[in-house]
Amino acid sequence: MRYWLLSLCLLCGLARAELPETDWLELMPEEDRQALEAMPEISHDTPEQDSGFYSPGGLRQQDADLPAVMYSSKTVPGLDGKQLRLGGYPVPLETDNSGRSTLFFLVPYPGACIHVPPPPPNQLVLVRYPKGLAIDDIYTPLWVSGQLKVEPVSNDLADAAYALDAADVRVVTEDDL
């Protein structure tokens, strides 16, 4: 009886264990990663930093001087259907009646909706989370776990190359660091 209880406790502990973190660069094919690494550093000096102005282009802003990798929708087919955990920042799209975000883009860095350039589509993930999450601040990092899909998504704000049906979304805590 004792061994059975110990085994059950171990299984319960494993069931609660989080998936290993997936790095954002793993969402890019190798050729895109190489092109990104070869790029010169991009300046984020934009008018909104001086005036407080929010650019209406959002995640769709484009700069003709940037290389094609900054607009790449190329994906990694082996990630389709994979369960993973990704850390990032929310860009809310839809909320439920309680004001909880049920649909949002997850982006790799905070403020992606106001910086030029925005992340490429293969660095944007549309997150569907029917349970909803209260998002008080888009600068609060999140952990999102669930099944990733190679699924092109386009709306007025952005294009994304991936979508994720989230099983769990939570705020990153100091214990995670």
Results as ranks from 00 to 15, higher is better:
residue 2 R to G: 13
residue 3 Y to F: 12
residue 3 Y to R: 13
residue 5 L to N: 15
residue 5 L to W: 14
residue 6 L to V: 05
residue 7 S to L: 07
residue 10 L to W: 10
residue 11 L to H: 04
residue 12 C to W: 14
residue 13 G to K: 14
residue 18 E to N: 04
residue 18 E to A: 13
residue 18 E to R: 12
residue 19 L to G: 00
residue 20 P to Q: 04
residue 22 T to K: 10
residue 24 W to L: 10
residue 24 W to E: 12
residue 25 L to W: 08
residue 25 L to A: 14
residue 26 E to G: 11
residue 26 E to W: 01
residue 28 M to G: 00
residue 30 E to Q: 10
residue 31 E to A: 15
residue 32 D to L: 00
residue 34 Q to G: 15
residue 34 Q to I: 14
residue 36 L to V: 06
residue 39 M to F: 05
residue 39 M to Y: 01
residue 39 M to E: 06
residue 39 M to P: 02
residue 41 E to P: 06
residue 41 E to Y: 09
residue 45 D to Y: 09
residue 47 P to A: 07
residue 47 P to D: 14
residue 52 G to F: 00
residue 54 Y to M: 14
residue 55 S to Q: 14
residue 55 S to I: 05
residue 57 G to T: 09
residue 58 G to K: 07
residue 59 L to C: 03
residue 59 L to T: 09
residue 59 L to N: 03
residue 60 R to Y: 04
residue 60 R to N: 13
residue 60 R to V: 02
residue 61 Q to A: 15
residue 66 L to M: 14
residue 69 V to T: 10
residue 69 V to H: 13
residue 71 Y to P: 10
residue 71 Y to N: 10
residue 73 S to T: 04
residue 77 P to R: 13
residue 79 L to R: 06
residue 80 D to G: 05
residue 81 G to R: 02
residue 83 Q to M: 10
residue 83 Q to L: 13
residue 84 L to E: 12
residue 86 L to Q: 06
residue 86 L to A: 03
residue 89 Y to F: 07
residue 90 P to H: 13
residue 91 V to Q: 12
residue 92 P to I: 15
residue 93 L to C: 05
residue 94 E to G: 04
residue 96 D to E: 07
residue 97 N to I: 12
residue 98 S to M: 13
residue 99 G to Q: 13
residue 103 L to S: 15
residue 103 L to M: 13
residue 103 L to P: 13
residue 104 F to S: 09
residue 105 F to S: 11
residue 105 F to E: 09
residue 106 L to N: 04
residue 106 L to K: 06
residue 107 V to N: 03
residue 109 Y to G: 02
residue 112 A to H: 01
residue 113 C to N: 15
residue 113 C to G: 11
residue 115 H to I: 00
residue 119 P to G: 05
residue 119 P to E: 11
residue 119 P to F: 08
residue 120 P to D: 06
residue 121 P to S: 09
residue 123 Q to W: 06
residue 124 L to A: 05
residue 124 L to K: 07
residue 127 V to P: 03
residue 128 R to L: 01
residue 129 Y to E: 05
residue 129 Y to A: 09
residue 130 P to E: 00
residue 133 L to E: 09
residue 133 L to I: 12
residue 134 A to E: 14
residue 139 Y to Q: 07
residue 140 T to V: 05
residue 142 L to Y: 03
residue 143 W to N: 11
residue 143 W to S: 09
residue 148 L to E: 01
residue 148 L to S: 00
residue 150 V to G: 04
residue 151 E to D: 14
residue 151 E to N: 02
residue 154 S to K: 15
residue 154 S to V: 06
residue 155 N to A: 12
residue 157 L to D: 15
residue 158 A to T: 08
residue 159 D to N: 11
residue 160 A to H: 04
residue 163 A to E: 05
residue 164 L to Y: 07
residue 165 D to L: 11
residue 165 D to N: 09
residue 167 A to G: 11
residue 168 D to Q: 09
residue 169 V to F: 13
residue 170 R to Q: 12
residue 170 R to F: 04
residue 172 V to R: 06
